[in-house]
Measured scan of single mutants.
Amino acid sequence: MQIFVKTLTGKTITLEVEPSDTIENVKAKIQDKEGIPPDQQRLIFNGKQLEDGRTLSDYNIQKDSTLHLVLR
């Protein structure tokens, strides 16, 4: 499925993911596309910070959902 990740600069990254993917996996995909190390990434969905060990389906993230990427 496709999800979107919006950065603070207003750029939107499109990712191909599975609901069973962990947040860690998603961060690795963002690193592949953008070169941002996962330990600098914080992903936010519906105002909640997403934890590495959880999956997209844990957070009820579905296709065409938009996550927000904050760098630390």
Rank of each mutant, 00 (worst) to 15 (best):
K6Y: 09
V17P: 03
N60S: 06
L15D: 00
M1Y: 03
Y59V: 04
K63I: 07
P38I: 03
G53K: 14
K33E: 15
P38Q: 10
G47S: 11
D52S: 05
Q62F: 06
I23Q: 12
L50V: 05
L56S: 01
L50F: 03
P38T: 14
G10P: 09
R72G: 09
L15M: 11
D39R: 15
T66F: 04
Q49D: 08
I44D: 12
I23L: 07
L8A: 15
I23V: 08
T9N: 06
V17S: 14
M1D: 11
Q31D: 10
D64R: 03
K6G: 02
L56R: 00
S65W: 05
N25D: 04
D21V: 09
V70G: 05
Q2Y: 06
E16Q: 12
D58F: 08
R54E: 08
L8N: 04
D32F: 06
Q49F: 06
E16G: 05
V17E: 02
K29T: 07
G10L: 10
G47H: 14
Q49M: 12
K33L: 05
L15T: 01
S57M: 15
R42T: 06
S65I: 06
K27H: 03
T12W: 10
S65D: 05
L71G: 14
Q31G: 11
I23R: 01
T55H: 12
I36G: 03
E34V: 10
T14M: 13
T22R: 09
I30A: 03
S57G: 07
Q62L: 11
I23S: 10
I30Y: 10
Y59W: 04
L8R: 09
G10I: 03
D39H: 07
P19A: 05
K63Q: 12
E24T: 15
N60Q: 04
L15K: 00
Q2V: 10
K63Y: 04
K6V: 13
Q49S: 06
T12P: 04
T55S: 12
V70A: 06
I44M: 13
S65P: 01
L71E: 08
N25L: 11
V17T: 14
E34R: 07
D64N: 11
G10V: 07
D52V: 08
E16T: 12
Q49L: 11
G35V: 02
T66P: 02
I61F: 03
D58E: 11
H68E: 03
F4K: 10
P19Y: 04
Y59E: 07
A28N: 03
R72I: 13
K48M: 12
L56N: 01
T55F: 05
D58T: 09
F4N: 14
G47I: 04
Q41H: 14
I44E: 08
F4V: 13
E34N: 05
K6M: 15
K27I: 02
T12L: 06
P38K: 15
K11H: 14
F45A: 03
G53Y: 05
L69W: 02
E16V: 13
M1K: 15
V70W: 03
R72T: 14
D39G: 04
L50T: 10
D64G: 09
K11R: 02
N25F: 02
K33N: 13
L43K: 00
L56F: 05
H68W: 02
A28W: 07
K63E: 13
D64M: 04
Y59Q: 03
I36N: 07
L67V: 08
D32E: 12
H68D: 04
Q41W: 05
Q40V: 06
T66R: 03
V5Q: 00
L8F: 04
I61D: 00
I30D: 00
T7Q: 02
I36Q: 10
I23D: 01
L69P: 00
G10E: 09
N60T: 15
N60M: 13
P37Q: 13
D52E: 14
I13P: 00
I44K: 06
I61S: 01
I36P: 05
E24P: 15
V26P: 00
K6P: 01
G35H: 02
Q40R: 14
K48R: 09
S20I: 14
D21L: 08
L8T: 11
Q2F: 12
G10Q: 08
T55K: 12
I36T: 15
Q2A: 10
